[in-house]
Design a protein around this nucleic acid. Structure first.
Lengths: 188, 188, 188, 188
DNA sequence: TATGAATGAGTATTCATTCAT
DNA sequence: GATGAATGAATACTCATTCAT
């Protein structure tokens, strides 16, 4: 399904060949696993079964490839954020905020791993990326009568972020039970 | 102070020269900022004002330099963990767990940045690193009559981890107020 | 006008499309400015607004493109040489030899630049290229009673060659006054 | 002897190793013969029997290697120019100007070939490079009562330049006889 | 005719590392 | 302990060229 989203977005601009897709897929996997700097373009080419030159033809540079990938990451983030932002009821808002972390398909983990790794690079880090979501969650806590809704929202966001990281590192199973605990904690 | 700790440990084995210290300091700074793979040994040598060869004389390889640094990181982690582990009273235990995140000197941030970045590398990641601390905090929650002490401990650890990451990325000031909120939340 | 000459010659063999002309024009400009080796076919294609493949369709190889250009250069040289060779009167012969350097249209300079640059490549250099002209000029000097007509001819040819180079490099204006001086020197 | 000059100048700044010299020598030869762009650094390394990396260690980049060579070319030019500039007597001045072209050692030809080839690159071309010499020669013609000394000087310089080019291309022998002719022409 | 996709062989340059001194 | 010289193995990227359409 997520493939559909990316393809759709890319198709608006240029035709996307099969090999181009393959390069993106392999690069995502390798960047997520080993890190951008640790992956030679040659390795990507080999694993994608294309010539190294093709990477540069399609993405201009190795950085260009990363950027393309990062853009796709952005689509996923937006998708998740929208779910929370579109909630009309405070409890539903919190529920959605908590849920998404646990519902992400393990097939999509590479996208999120890359995203989280890239957070440490200044050029990709945006401290206000989640501001709209935090604002929305603050509103939810406010509606529900919490004393310090802004802090509650901040804390929830950080907690979920950390849970997300753990799940990406240790696998979904290990932390899935935290969902019930969290929901109960916030009486959802 | 932390410099003293490292020197002490290293002194057990070999005499630590000034240049060796300089290499470690520069490498820490660069690895923390740019990432291990993005920093050439040449850059370290230049900034430390030593010959490139000296790095290899002292640390065998670039990896050896990272290992030495990682060991120093470990000392810091142990220092922090001990503070929690040695608490004899449950409230004190939680208080210490929460406090440490906010009391780390900004001068030490590079050590922690490196640590957190390295968490994404399989060869450095140890899912059970904080097990003893989590166990202790579980005990504290248990003593205090929390219903699901293990989950509470897990959650607190993750929350604090995430706060730590935010502070490393955005600076101490931005998140310092969360401390009071957390302490109040846990009635400390 | 010169365009007409080339077109005529090429037309004998194949139909010359507009794009083919564009490729030649752009290649000439770039080769003249940057040198054959410094110009990628991609740059030619882009500036000529055609696909890279088209260059190879029309000219077989990059070298083929250069050859085509060099042939056009040859036409220009022949045109100039003929003017001298066809002179029937010694003074007229010398006058024509001197004149041509100063009458070349600046629009044609790229052809001559390429020519002169290529002189340094062994595969294009022909030491006897101007032999017939030098012989004719030798004849002219002989007729006019010069003591060492062969040397005079050689010298004049070299002098004019050098003036040509200077004009190609510094522009026509800077050296145009040398014409009168030369004509006077040879009492023409 | 010229080697001595270069070594002397370079020694003032840094120690010049044997391999560094070898690289310069081979690069000069290849650049002069094939042209800068046509010579891969790998070819230089192989022929100089050093690792490719060493070229970059010593000269930063391929361009840096060319620059170093061009500087050495400059030394030679200065040497020649000085001979003319230091003449105190007009006839001697002209004699020296004419002589130098014919006295250059064929071993040095590569330096001059490179120089002349580089004249076609905008970044190396300086239209006023010979201004001081032309001024001096103008003075000489003036002293000798020539009517248009500035033009005479310009023309002589261009003629000699062209003779130089011919000698570089066809060999010394072919044009050596022009010396006597020129000397006689100017009654020297 | 004309092009976009694709590639093998380069191409300058970098990098971690070794060695003689 | 410390360094400058030197290098083999990458490394990102380019280039001329081919091919299917």
């Amino acid at each position: 399904m997520h493939t559909f989203v990316s393809e759709y977005l890319l198709n608006n601009k240029t035709k996307v060949t099969e090999k181009q897709q393959k390069i993106l897929a392999v690069a995502l996997e390798l960047f997520a696993k080993e890190g951008y700097n640790a992956v030679p373009t040659k390795a990507i080419a080999e694993q994608a079964d294309v010539s190294e030159a093709l990477i540069f033809r399609h993405f201009k540079s190795k950085q260009g490839l990363l950027d393309a990938l990062y853009q796709q990451c952005g689509e996923r983030v937006q998708f998740v954020k929208n779910s929370v932002l579109e909630a009309t009821e405070p409890n539903e808002c919190l529920r959605r905020a908590i849920h998404w972390v646990f519902t992400i398909d393990e097939e999509e983990y590479d996208y999120w791993k890359l995203q989280y790794k890239l957070k440490w690079e200044d050029s990709f880090y945006d401290p206000n990326k989640m501001k709209d979501v935090i604002d929305k969650v603050t509103w939810a806590f406010e509606q529900l009568g919490y004393e310090q809704p802004a802090f509650e929202a901040q804390l929830l966001e950080k907690t979920l972020d950390s849970v997300m990281i753990s799940m990406l590192r240790d696998g979904k199973q290990v932390h899935i039970h935290l969902r019930e605990f969290l929901l109960k904690k916030y009486s959802l």
